[in-house]
Design a binder for these strands. Structure first.
Lengths: 213, 213
DNA sequence: CTGAATGGATAGCGGCACTCTCTACTATCC
DNA sequence: GGATAGTAGAGAGTGCCGCTATCCATTCAG
């Protein structure tokens, strides 16, 4: 297909597709003439993935490029790939870390038998965790660390479901893509469901009881 | 204190504080002269809250304004306040909804005894959920709906911890603020922990086993 | 043959979150 | 009683990001 059809089928405007091509988010089509290129279903699929990463994952163009690079790498183990992708989809942010929050994170790791976390800033993910706790501390919520253990309990169930989803629904080739998509879409789904759960709790506990205001 | 000290104590640059004042994120200080105003600890606290919403929650200035307005409203019940806040911290996004995804969401609600969800687009939260499933479908992951139930299982534990946290650690006046902060910081914490759980699973299942690549 | 579409490239735009600059003060230190 | 530093307020400017518009030469479809 040519760019017009790609645009129609994906719902992405032609100039935007051109922009993605320029930015390297989409591989160039096969040129049949100096100004004619053909795109296949793989391009369509990739384009939809890019849009999903941007729309649902809220990733920047730069992050999308990193994620795609990690997905496309052939010479690394699956585990390393996933690690690279996770770094790409976890932006560090600009909060400066509170040493006490860092200590909370380290204590949490120690409690759960993780030994290799000497430096929290080494990974975006642990940095993210420490940054969140730091922010909490800055506004007087230093007890958020108490939530880590129950959260982990809940997440065991969730991560288990994630794992089963991946092994059940995807061919080995697509494992990484499925994990990326599942992680990002899963984040959004979790967010939404958690808010619904809060609303329900609030309705049960507060709405029906005596209104404090 | 004056703006300089407010800046030093919060780590926010003076021009930025002035900008927040102009944008109504921070109430004006008490003017003692035409060009002298005094700020108290409440201003500092509010400023830190604003930064937390922006840094950790990733909220826009406009969303922060909405959240603060909801927090400061005096004439609504706690339950309604929380609802308003949730709408503010859940931006709808631009994805168009897949009717099948909408049906998945409705089926999920029906399964769990929620009857009042005739229109998914009524609330940002349910819209978010439908949008996430739609995005999944567009890239061939229509089975993500199977994750909803296990996610809910895990989230029951997590929401329960959230509830206990709120009732244990906050005075009634600060309940809404605690829920906002807890929700947003909690989102980030959950994200990070989920990634760590995935990494652990990946290490156990793939890293140690035979590498598929 | 002709009008629409294409590949490629460069420039421009709109929104956002600041950041700069300026004026007219005021507070404080020596 | 200067000199210096800080301040309120407001408008303009900045830098980045994700597109979007324009242009050209070419080529395809009817």
């Amino acid at each position: 297909m040519r760019v017009g059809e790609l645009s129609k089928r994906s719902g992405v405007a032609v100039p935007t597709i051109k922009y993605y091509l320029r930015e390297g988010l989409l591989p160039a089509g096969v040129l049949t003439s100096p100004n004619q290129a053909y795109y296949d279903d793989e391009h369509l699929r990739r384009l939809r993935l890019v849009r999903a990463l941007i729309d649902v994952g809220g990733l920047s163009i730069a992050s999308v490029r990193e994620v795609l690079a990690a997905i496309d790498t052939r010479d690394e183990s699956l585990h390393n790939k996933l690690g690279a992708v996770q770094e790409a989809i976890s932006q560090p942010g600009t909060v400066e870390l509170d040493p006490l929050a860092v200590a909370d994170v380290q204590a949490f790791f120690a409690r759960h038998g993780e030994t290799e976390c000497a430096d929290v800033t080494e990974s975006n993910v642990t940095h993210m965790l420490a940054a969140a706790l730091s922010s909490g501390r800055s506004i007087g919520h230093d007890q958020i660390r108490d939530l880590l253990d129950p959260y982990l309990e809940g997440l065991k169930i969730i991560a288990q479901a994630d794992l089963e989803y991946v092994v059940r629904h995807t061919s080995p080739d697509d494992v990484i893509e499925a994990m990326v998509v599942g992680t990002l879409i899963g984040d959004t789904v979790l967010k939404a469901l958690r808010r619904l759960a809060h609303a329900q709790v609030s309705r049960d506990m507060i709405g029906d009881g005596p209104a404090p205001n």
